[in-house]
């Protein structure tokens, strides 16, 4: 896997892992806070929100680079897909997941529309391609069928 993280050499090797310990300077919350600022006092003061305690696309890409360097390319690809989903709102995420379950979509176009939404609205090309692949196979295997 060679993501942007890899190309920029952010991750030098698996010796950078765990990032929170070995490379704390490159770990930032979604709102740009460094790890050391995510303290109980800051939570009490309202300076840290749940958003600060989520993962960022960059952290996922960094973990993808580590997974790839550790010889786990499929895990790395999953992290790369996940990086694209960080910004996708919860309800959209759950809606698309639901659509991918058997028999939820009545035809291929509904699934392709979801793929388009991922690509165009959320800049998630890898995930979009993955959903398109699903649409193709669902059609071939007759999954656009009544279930309940």
């Amino acid at each position: 896997m060679s993501g942007p993280a890899d190309r920029n050499g952010r991750i030098r090797g698996i010796a950078d892992y765990p990032l929170a310990e070995k490379r704390p300077e490159i770990v930032k919350s979604a709102r740009g806070k460094p790890l050391k600022d995510l303290t109980l006092a800051a939570v009490e003061a309202g300076e840290v929100t749940l958003e600060d305690l989520g993962i960022t696309p960059q952290a996922l890409l960094d973990q993808a680079a580590i997974a790839a360097k550790a010889g786990r390319p499929t895990l790395a690809r999953n992290f790369a897909r996940a990086a694209e989903l960080v910004e996708v709102p919860q309800d959209v995420l759950l809606r698309i997941y639901e659509l991918l379950r058997p028999g939820r979509a009545g035809n291929k176009d509904e699934v392709l529309a979801a793929a388009r939404e991922l690509r165009e609205t959320y800049n998630a090309p890898t995930m979009a391609a993955f959903v398109e692949e699903a649409a193709e196979i669902y059609e071939r295997r007759g999954l656009f069928t009544f279930r309940y």
């Binding site: 996922l60 996940a82 694209e84 698309i96 993955f130």
Partner: peptide, 16 residues
């Protein structure tokens, strides 16, 4: 009530 793609989507969703 799932497919490999729906589960893989879920896997990425959890990681995200």
């Amino acid at each position: 009530d799932d497919t490999p793609w729906s589960k893989a989507f879920l896997a990425a969703a959890y990681a995200s």
